[in-house]
Computed example of a mutant assay.
Amino acid sequence: MSTLSGKVALVTGASKGIGRAVAERLAADGARVGVHYHRSEAEAKEVVGAIEAAGGQAFPLQAELGVAGDAAALWSEFTRHADGVDILVNNAGAGLLAPIGAIKEDDFDRLLAVNVKSPLFVIQEGLDKLRDGGRIINVSSATTRIAMPNVLAYSMTKGAVNTLTLTLAEALAPRGITVNAIAPGIIATDFNPWLAHPQMRAAAESWSAFGRTGTPADVAGLAGFLASDAASWVSGQVIDVSGASSLGNGPTPKS
C-alpha cells in the first residue's frame, strides 16, 4: 500500500517549481492532491493531468493569496472537492531581489502578505478541516541561516515562517499534528531565473558541498518523508535541504 493512501493533501503554489514537484511526490505516494494556483491555470491543469496519467488523483483549485479574504476563498474552493485535509503544504511565496537601500515599502508589504500573513491565516482557516494526526509543511529558505544581503527582505519573511513553524508545533501537538518547515537552497526553477547565466550558475553550484544546484525533486523527497507516518515523531523543525550549501570553509553567497 502507498504510504499516503487515503490521505488528502493541499499544496499551495503547485503549478510549477517546488510546489509541482511536491504535489507529484505526494500523489505518487498515494495522496489525493489539491493543486493550488493563482494565475497559472493551464500549468495547474497540466500538473493534474500528469498526476492522473501516472495513476494518481488530483484536482486544481484557484485562489489569489496575499489579499484580504484569501484564506476563506482558498478553503471554500477546496471544500468543493474534499471534506477534509490531512497534509497542508504552504509553498506559495513571493520573492524580492534588492539590497537594503533598494527595498520599497510597497514591495515589502507584498512579501509580508504572501509569505507570512497568508500561511498564518490559511492554517487558521483550515484548522477545522485538518484532521487529527495531520501534517503541516511550510516552505522556508536556507537564507535564514546564510547571509545573502540581496534577498534581505525575503529572508526576513522566511524567518517569520520558521517561528510560525516552531510555535504551531507546540500548539497543535495535542491533536497529533506535526508542523515542520523545509529550507531549500538554490533550486533550479523559474524562481531563480538568474541561473540561466553561466557564471552565476557556476557560483551557485560552488556554494553546495555537492557542486550542483538543487532540483525540485530534491525538495519533494523531504516533503514526502515529513508527510508520512515515518515522520510522526518529528515536529517543530526547520530542515535544511540546500545540498549542504555554505558549510565549513565554503564561500558565503552575496546575491
Rank of each mutant, 00 (worst) to 15 (best):
I182V: 15
P184L: 04
P184F: 01
P184N: 09
P184W: 03
P184G: 05
P184C: 09
P184Q: 08
G185V: 02
I186L: 09
I186G: 05
I186P: 02
I187F: 07
I187W: 02
I187L: 06
I187E: 06
I187G: 11
A188M: 10
A188F: 08
A188E: 15
T189S: 06
D190R: 14
D190V: 07
D190N: 11
D190S: 14
D190A: 15
F191K: 08
F191V: 13
F191A: 14
F191D: 11
N192Q: 11
N192W: 02
P193L: 04
P193Y: 03
P193C: 09
P193S: 10
W194H: 13
W194I: 12
W194K: 12
W194D: 14
A196R: 14
A196H: 08
A196F: 03
A196E: 14
H197Q: 15
H197D: 15
H197M: 13
P198R: 13
P198E: 09
P198S: 10
Q199N: 14
Q199M: 08
M200G: 02
M200K: 15
M200N: 08
R201C: 01
R201H: 09
R201D: 01
A202T: 04
A203C: 00
A203S: 13
A203Y: 08
E205A: 15
E205T: 12
S206C: 07
S206Y: 02
S206R: 14
S206H: 09
W207Q: 12
S208M: 03
S208G: 07
S208C: 06
A209K: 12
A209E: 12
F210S: 08
F210A: 10
G211F: 03
G211E: 09
R212F: 08
R212S: 07
T213N: 12
G214M: 00
T215R: 15
P216H: 06
P216I: 02
A217G: 11
A217V: 11
A217W: 01
D218I: 04
D218M: 03
V219R: 03
A220Y: 06
A220R: 03
A220N: 06
A220L: 00
G221W: 00
G221D: 11
G221N: 15
L222A: 14
L222Q: 12
L222T: 12
L222N: 11
A223Y: 05
A223P: 13
A223L: 07
A223K: 10
G224N: 04
G224W: 01
F225R: 06
F225M: 06
F225L: 15
L226Y: 07
L226F: 06
A227C: 02
A227Q: 06
S228I: 04
S228Y: 00
S228W: 01
S228Q: 03
A230H: 13
A230R: 14
A231P: 04
A231Q: 08
A231M: 03
